[in-house]
């Protein structure tokens, strides 16, 4: 009797609970989960691409991110490269001061967190994509050259890789073509361009 009464008296309780469970989970999955999954780690010093690529310095990507003669992409330049210009502070910024004092003078490499670090078994040749396929840096890396600050490096607590590998959007659906650096992104582009590659083409 009581049960039936309750059921009649509060017909929305079940639905409400169902709905709140549903909604709660959506909140957890879409908003709280990313916060828990990723841990923010500060970069050792701040860096502005814009200052370097802008009118002041007018540098191109390749000036620092070099593809060597043997086709290896050297990635983030060594501190010796920075020292070519910053042997002593040029401007007034605290970051530059830190660069000179903590890294250039003791000749110590800057322990950057690398947004695009891939697992060791993935092989990627910048040389063939840039020199043969004529891809522009921005097509994969986005307008990073115009950024004034380094964004926060977020490391995935489970996999240990940067958030940028999966993409900013937790759903995995990129909001920009350059977002995300997982294998399906590679495959997508290769398929579109009619490449039929074996696994070992991109795995070492």
């Amino acid at each position: 009797m009581l049960k039936r009464k309750l059921k009649i008296a509060l017909p929305s309780t079940g639905k409400f609970l169902f709905g709140s469970g549903f909604a709660g989970m959506l909140v957890i999955g879409w908003f709280i989960f990313p916060m828990v999954l990723y841990k923010s780690e500060p970069q050792p010093i701040q860096f502005s691409h814009k200052v370097h690529t802008g009118e002041q310095a007018g540098m191109a990507c390749e000036d620092c991110h070099v593809i060597s003669d043997d086709g290896r992409f050297l990635g983030i330049p060594a501190v010796a490269k920075c020292a070519e210009c910053h042997s002593s502070p040029i401007g007034e910024s605290a970051n530059e001061k830190s660069l000179v004092e903590n890294y250039i003078i003791p000749n110590k490499e800057i322990p950057w967190h690398i947004y695009s670090r891939q697992p060791d078994n993935a092989y990627f040749s910048h040389a063939s994509h840039v020199r043969l396929a004529h891809l522009k840096c921005e097509e994969c890396h986005g307008p990073i050259g115009e950024s004034a600050r380094l964004k926060v490096y977020q490391v995935n607590r489970i996999s240990g890789y940067s958030r940028d590998i999966w993409g900013e959007n937790i759903s995995g659906i990129p909001s920009h073509p350059w977002e995300g650096m997982k294998m399906d992104r590679c495959v997508h582009c290769h398929e579109k361009n009619g490449r039929r590659d074996g696994c070992i083409e991109c795995h070492k």
């Binding site: 593809i67 003669d69 043997d70 086709g71 290896r72 040749s125 910048h126 040389a127 063939s128 020199r131």
Partner: peptide, 10 residues
């Protein structure tokens, strides 16, 4: 891979 990227660089 190394040979290809060397060729690609050129």
């Amino acid at each position: 891979h190394t040979a290809r990227q060397k060729a690609a660089a050129n």
